[in-house]
Design a protein around this nucleic acid. Structure first.
Length: 231
DNA sequence: CCCTGATTCGC
DNA sequence: GCGAATCAGG
């Protein structure tokens, strides 16, 4: 896999949108493993993991005995043997992991696998292109489908605020402060320009294609037929 | 079973 | 650095 600057940017983007690793992988035509692996190497914020937090914790005694730290999955040779004990210090504190615990509640799952790349596979065909979250940049709420209903009588609001989605304010490093984002309301292309966290980072902001989070220009890059991207 | 993300470790 | 194999929870 060639991790170009662009594919990485897309990975970050999709990742930050909360898409599942498998979904991201599908869109990038790579395996979910590749996605997760890369995400980790990039230091992207961990998602709420479905499995139990098996490390960290103060005394570390928790999981030790009940769970064999590592199996030797056949492919794993006995490279550790004696070394294991000698280097068995490992008391490293994974502060980052802990931090993720704090945010466990945020959840708000991606709702549905959306934004399937237009492909010729029958499977992808079932997915209806939805504006998953053209409004990701900040407080605007996705989920227009939210069946949240206000008072049946009053509230003739022409623009009912969408449900207060607990969008957990992006992590500090992704703080939108100082980010140059489009001033106009409504959908805007969320193609990332620059690196999140850096001063110049911003989203494209152009008017997106109907039903897509990207403008025509970036949608052309974002949505590539799987068959065509084989090279 | 399916899904999910996390981790390990040969390459 | 990469990602398949694997683990493990829902």
């Amino acid at each position: 896999m060639e991790w170009t600057d662009e594919t990485i940017a897309r990975l970050r983007d999709l990742w930050s949108q909360g898409l599942s690793t498998a979904e991201i992988g599908r869109q990038l035509s790579i395996t979910k493993n590749a996605v997760v692996g890369k995400a980790h190497r990039l230091g992207l914020p961990p998602r709420p993991s479905p499995i139990r937090n098996r490390k960290t914790k103060d005394g570390d005694t928790a999981t030790t005995e009940a769970m064999p730290r590592r199996k030797s999955p056949s492919r794993a040779k006995v490279t550790e043997t004696a070394a294991s004990d000698l280097f068995a210090d490992s008391k490293d504190a994974s502060a980052a992991k802990k931090a993720s615990e704090v945010v466990e509640k945020v959840a708000e799952k991606p709702a549905a696998p959306v934004r399937k790349a237009p492909s010729d596979t029958p499977q992808a065909a079932k997915a209806v292109p939805q504006p998953v979250t053209a409004a990701r940049p900040a407080s605007a709420a996705p989920k227009e489908a939210a069946p949240v209903r206000r008072d049946p009588v009053v509230a003739p609001k022409p623009e009912p605020r969408v449900a207060p989605v607990p969008r957990p304010a992006l992590p500090p490093r992704f703080s939108t402060a100082g980010i140059d984002r489009p001033t106009r309301r409504g959908p805007s292309c969320c193609w990332p320009i620059g690196d999140p966290g850096t001063p110049g980072f911003h989203f494209c902001g152009a008017t997106p294609l109907p039903g897509k989070p990207y403008c025509a220009e970036h949608a052309a890059i974002a949505y590539v037929k799987i068959r065509d991207r084989r090279d």
